[in-house]
């Protein structure tokens, strides 16, 4: 039987790791220390699985693992992290909107354009100060299927895509939390909205044109998140 060893290795992986391999999806809320066995299982993937059909989506090691690792540092033992990830990609069924024909000129014969809406990541963490942090990543992908005649008279078709990524970070603070405006404004790519009051909320949004699929994304998300914590940064101890 083909892939006998790999199949056996796959069956020994964490059940959620297996779901990520087979369905490219994850939807679970786990207490802080329950994430580590899943991460350790995923860390074993490359050593045991070479079959492409059973590959682990890149977003797992490049996005999910670092985010969960960072967020768990700010959790109590009983605090939870919830992750809803759909890693099937913007080309998966059900994500594409209606197609539209664009006007063209020779040698282009036809351009079909459509947009896909791909809300592929939502993370919620219950932090140890009583606040919650929500992270959402939505890709809006423009597809263009271009049909043209090449110089030798052959008809060629190719599909181009362009991704606009919107990252939202929302921090909901517990009753009585006090916001202090940071000394410097955030970089221009970050939009900040504040709801002040007994339970303040800080909402941040970044639009990233031409986003690569996953590399560098945790860095982006965490730099965006910094703004949500600058508003509650501890004030230095004063000599009294």
């Amino acid at each position: 039987m083909f892939y006998r060893k790999q199949k056996a290795a796959l069956a020994r992986f964490h059940p959620l790791h297996q779901a990520l391999v087979h369905e490219h999806r994850l939807s679970v809320t786990l207490p802080r220390d329950a994430w580590e066995p899943l991460i350790q299982s995923c860390a074993q993937h490359r050593a045991h699985i070479r079959r492409r059909k059973w590959a682990l989506p890149d977003e797992v090691p490049l996005v999910l693992v670092p985010l969960v690792r960072v967020l768990s540092r700010d959790l109590r033992r009983t605090g939870t992290i919830g992750v809803t990830a759909d890693l099937t990609g913007p080309e998966a069924a059900g994500k594409a909107g209606p197609q539209q024909s664009l006007q063209v000129r020779r040698p282009i014969r036809r351009v079909l354009q459509w947009y896909a809406f791909d809300p592929w990541l939502a993370v919620r963490a219950e932090l140890r100060d009583g606040s919650t942090l929500d992270i959402a990543v939505v890709d809006r992908v423009r597809f263009r299927k271009i049909t043209k005649t090449n110089p030798r008279g052959k008809i060629k078709t190719k599909t181009k895509s362009k991704t606009l990524r919107v990252i939202t970070v929302t921090r909901r603070l517990p009753k009585g939390a006090v916001l202090t405006r940071p000394a410097s404004p955030p970089p221009p790519w970050i939009r900040v909205r504040i709801k002040d009051g007994p339970r303040p909320v800080i909402r941040l949004r970044a639009r990233i044109p031409n986003a690569p699929r996953s590399s560098g994304l945790p860095n982006h998300i965490l730099h965006l998140s910094a703004e949500a914590f600058r508003w509650t940064a501890p004030q230095a101890r004063r000599a009294s």
Partner: peptide
């Protein structure tokens, strides 16, 4: 810290 139970969101 604000010693709150957390998870209390509207």
């Amino acid at each position: 810290d604000w010693a709150s139970g957390g998870g209390d969101f509207d």
